[in-house]
Amino acid sequence: MRKEYKLSLIIFISIFIFDQFVKYAFVNFSWEVDGPYMSLKLAYNYGVAFSMFAFLQEYLKYIQLVIALVATIYLVKNKEIFYKYFIPISILYAAGLSNILDRFTYGAVVDYFYWHYGFEFAIFNIADVMINLAVAIIIIMQILEAREEKKKKSKS
């Protein structure tokens, strides 16, 4: 097994299990805490980001599974993309599939971080943060690659 696959699996399992553990704890052990800037408060998101598409609540888990399956097929057919971006892809899959599992387990995504200092922000979870981190890593990698290509072109 290639080292990328091994590391990818370790990243995936670590993030997935940690995220599910924290969500389970919020649902079952009432970890709620009120703070002056941010609170930990259990909430269920029946939609996607900022509760958009909540009207699709019953179908979102299946729609998201199909998207994950299509993405997996794409990565299997384009292995060079996986090898290039395996770290953010592993993070993205772990977080995304953890949120999908919530939909099957709890009927919605379990959220608990609630920012309320200066303005009220959407309630979110660790998986949401990981999804944003993965996307940011991909964007940074793309920017660095574009700069490197520009340097090579300017030298020739």
Score class of each variant (00 low, 15 high):
112 Y>T: 00
60 L>A: 06
133 L>G: 10
105 T>W: 08
107 G>Y: 07
76 V>T: 02
80 E>L: 04
74 Y>N: 09
121 F>H: 13
19 D>H: 02
20 Q>D: 08
54 A>L: 00
134 A>L: 12
1 M>G: 00
152 K>D: 09
23 K>L: 11
23 K>D: 01
16 F>Q: 05
138 I>H: 01
43 A>G: 15
156 S>M: 00
58 E>V: 06
133 L>E: 04
37 Y>P: 01
142 Q>I: 08
72 T>M: 15
84 K>V: 06
19 D>L: 01
151 K>C: 07
3 K>I: 11
129 V>Q: 07
40 L>D: 10
96 G>M: 06
69 L>T: 15
122 A>N: 05
156 S>V: 03
83 Y>T: 10
133 L>Q: 07
107 G>D: 13
43 A>N: 08
134 A>K: 12
84 K>M: 10
84 K>I: 00
71 A>V: 14
68 A>C: 13
58 E>K: 15
130 M>P: 05
12 F>T: 04
133 L>N: 05
108 A>T: 08
25 A>F: 14
67 I>A: 15
33 V>E: 13
54 A>P: 04
25 A>K: 15
115 W>Q: 07
64 Q>W: 13
78 N>V: 04
39 S>L: 05
53 F>V: 11
153 K>I: 08
94 A>W: 03
52 M>T: 07
139 I>F: 05
43 A>P: 01
77 K>P: 04
63 I>F: 12
104 F>S: 05
76 V>Y: 12
57 Q>Y: 07
140 I>D: 01
152 K>C: 00
38 M>N: 02
91 I>P: 03
90 S>A: 08
75 L>R: 11
68 A>W: 11
32 E>Y: 09
147 R>W: 14
156 S>Q: 05
134 A>V: 03
58 E>H: 13
121 F>I: 12
125 N>W: 08
86 F>V: 07
120 E>R: 12
90 S>N: 11
117 Y>T: 01
44 Y>C: 06
136 A>P: 02
81 I>E: 14
114 Y>C: 07
72 T>R: 05
134 A>Q: 10
46 Y>A: 11
151 K>E: 14
47 G>T: 06
36 P>S: 13
104 F>E: 03
97 L>I: 08
73 I>S: 00
39 S>R: 06
131 I>R: 05
63 I>D: 10
123 I>K: 10
140 I>V: 15
146 A>L: 06
75 L>F: 10
149 E>T: 11
43 A>D: 10
68 A>I: 14
97 L>F: 15
93 Y>F: 15
13 I>C: 10
82 F>I: 02
10 I>W: 11
89 I>K: 05
125 N>A: 02
104 F>L: 08
119 F>D: 03
87 I>W: 06
48 V>D: 06
143 I>S: 02
153 K>A: 09
